[in-house]
Computed example of a mutant assay.
Amino acid sequence: MEKDTFKAHTQYGDLKGSVSADRTDQNNFSDLLRERDVLKGGEIVKGITFYNEGHYFSVSAFIENEQGELRKERVAMSLEELFKTFKRFSVTLSRGGELEGQEIHFVDVQQ
């Protein structure tokens, strides 16, 4: 049995933040996994990770079966294919995460 911490991380962690996403109503990530016969009846996707480094892109799904056991499945797909499974996708990043969760005030610069 493998073990890992479900948290985004990079080698240096220069920028940190958060992410929020809405699934598409049809052809979402779970639907794609069902089409590929990765997701079986009674199973649900509990989490998704993706990682990019240069030309390397990796997607993994964390799938829970009816017994509550979790498994990790690597999913071959492009970044474009992944983003098509979401209706909306929002990411925030700030230096060291210093703005995360903060109400920020900024000057509106008129051009």
Rank of each mutant, 00 (worst) to 15 (best):
V38P: 00
S58H: 15
F106A: 03
S90P: 06
E43D: 03
D22S: 10
Y56C: 00
L33N: 01
I63D: 00
V75C: 05
E81T: 04
E69N: 15
R95F: 13
Q67W: 04
D22T: 13
G97D: 04
E66P: 01
R36Q: 05
L82C: 03
S78K: 07
A76P: 02
S90R: 12
F50G: 00
T5S: 07
F106E: 04
Q67Y: 15
G47A: 10
E2L: 11
E80Y: 10
V38L: 06
F106W: 14
E69I: 02
Q110K: 11
F6A: 06
K3Q: 12
V91R: 13
Q11T: 15
D31C: 04
E53A: 11
D14E: 10
S90A: 13
A21N: 03
K72E: 13
F106C: 00
G41R: 08
F50A: 03
K84L: 06
N52Y: 13
V38Q: 01
L82V: 03
T85R: 02
D37Q: 15
F62C: 06
M77R: 00
D22E: 15
G68D: 10
K87F: 12
H55I: 06
F89H: 11
L33R: 02
I44D: 11
Q67P: 00
S30F: 03
L15P: 05
S94M: 09
G13W: 08
A21Y: 04
I44H: 13
Y12G: 00
S20T: 13
L93V: 09
T5A: 08
S30C: 11
F6R: 07
E64M: 14
R36G: 00
N28E: 07
Q110F: 14
R36V: 00
L15G: 02
G13Y: 07
Q67G: 01
S58L: 15
F6H: 01
K40T: 02
L39D: 03
